[in-house]
Write a protein that binds this DNA or RNA. Structure first.
Lengths: 318, 318
DNA sequence: CTGTTAGCGCATTCAG
DNA sequence: CTGAATGCGCTAACAG
């Protein structure tokens, strides 16, 4: 590989000038600049990032921490994220955490790369105290998704379709999100002066049939079921069918995700769309701001929209 | 951050000795070694990877190139791969390619990290010429999945269930795999002295209803359909249902993937399981061999096994 | 505007 | 077995 010295010799300038041309674009005569650029071209020179990072304070790396449970959902967007990061001249390094408990461990591991920024996706903990952290989640400075709004919208829609007994399946591995969803659920009912029935709320891990069995075992009739994940919806469709309950004829179903799976199921799911794209764009915006030392943007809040498909039917009013 | 100088001072040895203890374990007095190790501990010293990589020829990075189309399938296993790599004291850097055409571009980009090895997943091109490349695919030295075997097994199973008109949906974006599958298909028929009917083979992109419509438009009766991807199976179930053809009552369905989606569908899919786990384990084995400069392992070939669920019924013999 | 110089932290000679 | 010295490639003062 060609080094900066090779370039400087070929361009008849000093290494410092080459460095100036390639990094801080200021204060170089046009003539010299062109000579350098030409030499760079002909030698196909690429700066050695290790030498660069060693000489500088930090590297061209952006650390990205993912919850393993979110990897499936996010992974389809990883290329998008990587491209966005590369568009800013940076590189992406991944760290995986099984649970929030491991976040510090990963952060420390990733610190060996001296990243210019750290992006944390899907971790509930508030990381505002850390420096140069961009977070999607519930933290102080995080990019927020409006879960209450999503849940309220879903319930509101089901109510508009005549449903009165609306069950909701919440997962307990993300307590803050769980609470936010429950808030939205109660809010929607309250706005219509409808009673809140604790029996219609089940907690349980994702994709677990048990949670649903628990609901069925309560012998409480419900005409609609709201779940957070499309995969939960898939589980629900399967299990309900085994109990001879068809979706949407007997029970309407809504999810708060709208992943590719939503259209693959029978019936295709009516959803409040979780806008990963937009969230990641917001992340990239923040990253750009952070690099250019602009003022910190205020808390970002994004909302989902209603996507109507076939898993909701109007309820038979009695 | 503590540097090697700090450690050397605290341990009352020279930087060289510290370096020796931490890398090449040879030729250090037990006494000195312990002093160094203790100093490392108390200072919580971590070598600066940039300085390390600069001084050395190469880095602690392993480059991993993924086809974007495979990201969804592989992503759930990315943490597994990352852990396996980290277990060998290395780090993983990702590169995404939309098509095989971009592979060289990514390889060049990743070369800036001076990776000790490059892992290429799901790219058809033969990369044997490149140095230190570990590949899952069809290349000369690649880790192979036995596609013909998988396809033959599936057809064999369907035949055993009385099916005689077995349609197959192949995708054309991976020609080598397509051909391999077709080989297996023909082989299975040949073994039973059954005729091969070109009309039962459709080509088309993944998740495209058109391919399936094409098949239906041929008005050729078939009692079973074989697809490569679970998502294709999902598409098939949905489309067939819209034509009032139920799975598995009227058409049996098999896939060659068995991803998490396979059990989420109605009916759950009978599959030949594609063993990503094992393939990645094979990759990690190769990586270990490559690091320890052992002899190159012979070509690796892995096979899938039959997973019986509910999407295949015995055919009504006429 | 530009060249010279001095490190960044580490591994690796080469003498002891 | 060990320490001093050298250089990896680059950036950032500091003088001109």
């Amino acid at each position: 590989m060609a080094t900066i010295t090779d370039v400087s010799r070929l361009a008849n300038v000093s290494k410092a000038t080459v460095s100036r041309v390639l990094t801080g674009n200021r204060g170089v005569r046009q003539e010299s600049r062109e000579a350098v650029l030409k030499a760079v071209e002909t030698l196909n020179y690429r700066p050695n990032i290790f030498a660069q990072s060693l000489a500088n304070e930090y590297s061209n790396q952006v650390a990205v921490v993912l919850r393993e449970a979110d990897v499936n959902r996010l992974s389809a967007h990883l290329p998008q994220l990587a491209r966005g990061i590369q568009a800013q001249g940076l590189e992406m390094t991944l760290g995986f955490v099984a649970s929030s408990a491991q976040i510090d461990e990963q952060l420390q591991r990733l610190s060996q790369f001296n990243p210019v920024a750290t992006i944390v996706l899907g971790v509930d903990d508030d990381l505002s105290t850390h420096d140069r952290v961009i977070q999607i989640g519930m933290g102080e400075q995080a990019i927020h998704y409006d879960y209450p709004f999503a849940c309220e919208s879903a319930v509101r829609y089901l109510l508009s379709q005549g449903h009165r007994q609306i069950a909701i399946w919440l997962d307990d591995d993300e307590p803050k999100i769980r609470d936010a969803l429950l808030d939205g659920y109660r809010q929607a009912l309250q706005n219509q002066s409808l009673p809140f029935n604790r029996q219609l709320v089940v907690n349980g891990p994702h994709d677990s049939e048990q949670s649903l069995l628990e609901l069925l075992n309560r012998y409480l009739p419900f005409s609609a079921l709201l779940v957070r994940r499309d995969s939960d919806a898939a589980t629900a469709i399967r299990l309900l069918r085994e109990f001879n309950i068809t979706v949407p004829q007997e029970v309407s179903l809504m999810s708060l995700e709208d992943s590719p799976l939503a259209v693959q199921l029978c019936p295709p799911l009516t959803c409040i769309h979780y806008p990963i794209d937009s969230l990641l764009d917001a992340v990239l915006d923040r990253l750009a701001q952070l690099l250019h030392k602009q003022t910190r943007s205020p808390q970002t809040l994004l909302r989902g929209n209603l996507v109507i498909r076939d898993s909701v039917r109007t309820a038979n009013h009695r």
